[in-house]
Nucleic acid binder design. Structure first.
Lengths: 339, 339
DNA sequence: GCCTGGCACTCGGCCGCAGTGAGTGCCAAG
DNA sequence: CTTGGCACTCACTGCGGCCGAGTGCCAGGC
């Protein structure tokens, strides 16, 4: 019960600090939250909390602010996920439902998430490996040139120009198209490697080099090249977060432009079925040590199509942000899953 | 000649201020640049330049800084375009030549431009209206569903799902494909409207609704929807530009996230055959009144495929930036034109 | 007529200083 | 274990003075 009150004090500190962005002191705490004890008692608790590393003071004779560890405890044990209001849910839905194609869905989601949370939002495009092939098209462009277009069930399109060593014509293209479609259409791309492996033997020898190139392309694009696409919005919101932030602003922006970094951050949340939070150094990115990342996967239950999330200052309204991310992910998932 | 020296003084002020970001005074000017006159004389010139509105002083007893008008004069009459070094040209080329598809080209260019100029870089995707149709593909997805994919000669791919009122099969799809390709392949998309207009009459009546939908899609995607795509990079560079900038940083970032605004800014430079510069209020965007935009079109001589450019503080090395933008545009143009 | 050196003046930036007040830690009493 | 009291710390603020870069003006020289 002493333990309980301490946690309550921690929660109060986090909540107040998130609101005010100023170190919170014992007196204000005891007043604003009905803790039922005097400031002196709160001071003792704070002292203990500081000892344990949950809070810290920027300088002597100032209030306390939560540490990474403090936020972590708050997120893990002290906060639920604030449910969104009916109006908010409806807003999300109406914002997304006008989308005409995949690109549009992604761009709308990312803007929506940025506006909603007032943070930087990031949305991965549906990953190829968790999509299925809808159709593969092969077109001749010239005597030794073909274009291959792969369309997935999420609406994503990958195209590649292929230079053939031997001459090609429409007939050959048709044959390749038929072979590839027959083997891959409807298959999940994650299963493609096995399917493709046996393909070569069943084909006319003279087509094999071309076919190999094409299956190569399929596999290669599957190999989640690091520049796997993503969309970002709301970078302007970074400036919202206090001024001391300004120093690190550049390095944060730089980190955010590194797609690889973001993919890791957002992508790692994809597999877990829930909203995950990484706070401060937990991001494993030095430039982001003053920020927190709230992310989740979207679409298809266990086989998430991609990840989405927001990056913001550690001082963030976690319950609300988590709720918003979860809600947007849910709608986007439905939108893409149904398609 | 007096006039000449004044211009020389203005140039010196711009150059010094770009380097130091500090108001430049008469003494320093007379010393650092061999103007052959004393500080007192320079003061007189400065006084005149201020009268005419080319320079201003942030406060009494401080040096002068150029105004919008001053930069404008500098760009128009006082600066050539610094040629790039051999090494730099080579660097550009090697950075771009590994690109595998259109997306890759655009993303590489924008990163390159951002790194080169240390500013925020923006690249439009090749606009559809100045591209030609390379191929149109029609595929059945279901009994009443088809997918249409249009591929342009710049490698851009537009796809759209079409729901038909009447049942469709592979044969019909083939017929539609043939009709569309026959009419449009090789045509510039800008000419598409006329070509398409006559198409309906030459077709079997039962196909007309479908065909109409498809040509509709072609025309619609041609209509340069405002969200015409573009890529941006180097926003972190904004923080580089002095601190007083920091206040306006948010509004600048917000403006940059407005695609429509950017499209206008970059797009308007597309038609002019040269590098254009918009300084301060010339951008017609209030949030960008402290910035300058250097932009140009790329590809295909008079029929530019798209625009690219950079956004940075007014205090910018214009000769060098203009040279860099021009050089990158040239290489990208070659890359996409040859393709 | 233009350039130049000299001179008085302005004013933003940079100390150093003391006063203020929020907040802490400790202690003794309930 | 809680509480009120008390001394202490220290960031922040406002004030006054100094400094120096930079200006404008003027009278003298080429």
């Amino acid at each position: 019960m002493l333990e309980d009150r301490r946690l309550e004090v921690l929660r109060a500190i986090v909540e107040d600090f998130v609101l005010s962005n100023e170190p919170v002191g014992s007196k204000a705490l005891a007043e604003r939250h009905s803790l039922g004890v005097s400031p002196a008692t709160v001071r003792n608790d704070m002292s203990a909390l500081e000892e344990e590393g949950y809070i810290t003071q920027p300088h002597t004779s100032a209030g306390r602010i939560p540490t990474d560890k403090g936020y972590r405890l708050f997120v893990d044990r002290l906060s639920g996920v604030k449910p969104l209001s009916r109006a908010e849910r409806r807003a999300i839905q109406s914002f997304l439902e006008g989308a005409v194609d995949l690109d549009d869905v992604v761009r709308r989601s990312v803007r929506l998430l940025a506006q909603l949370t007032r943070q930087v939002a990031v949305v991965q495009y549906p990953s190829l490996s968790s999509s299925s092939v809808r159709h593969i098209e092969v077109v001749t462009l010239g005597p030794r040139r073909m274009l291959m277009v792969m369309i997935t069930d999420t609406g994503r399109v990958e195209q590649r120009i292929i230079d053939s060593l031997t001459p090609v014509d429409d007939e050959i293209a048709g044959e390749l198209r038929a072979t590839l479609n027959c083997a891959l259409a409807g298959q999940r791309l994650a299963d493609a490697p096995e399917v493709v492996a046996t393909l070569s033997d069943q084909t006319r020898p003279e087509l094999r080099p071309c076919l190999a190139t094409m299956t190569g392309v399929v596999l290669e694009s599957l190999a989640e090249r690091p520049e796997e696409r993503l969309a970002m919005a709301g970078t302007a919101n970074l400036t919202r977060a206090s001024v001391d932030f300004a120093d690190s602003l550049r390095s944060i922006l730089e980190a955010l432009e590194e797609q690889v970094v973001l993919m890791k951050l957002i992508g790692s949340a994809r597999e877990t079925g829930t909203v995950t939070v990484r706070i401060g150094r937990e991001t494993d990115v030095d430039a982001l040590r003053t920020t927190a990342v709230v992310a989740t996967g979207y679409g298809r239950g266990p086989f998430a199509l991609g990840g989405m999330g927001v990056v913001g200052p550690m001082r963030m309204d976690y319950p609300w942000t988590m709720a918003a991310v979860r809600a947007v992910a849910k709608y986007v998932g439905e939108l893409l899953g149904a398609d």
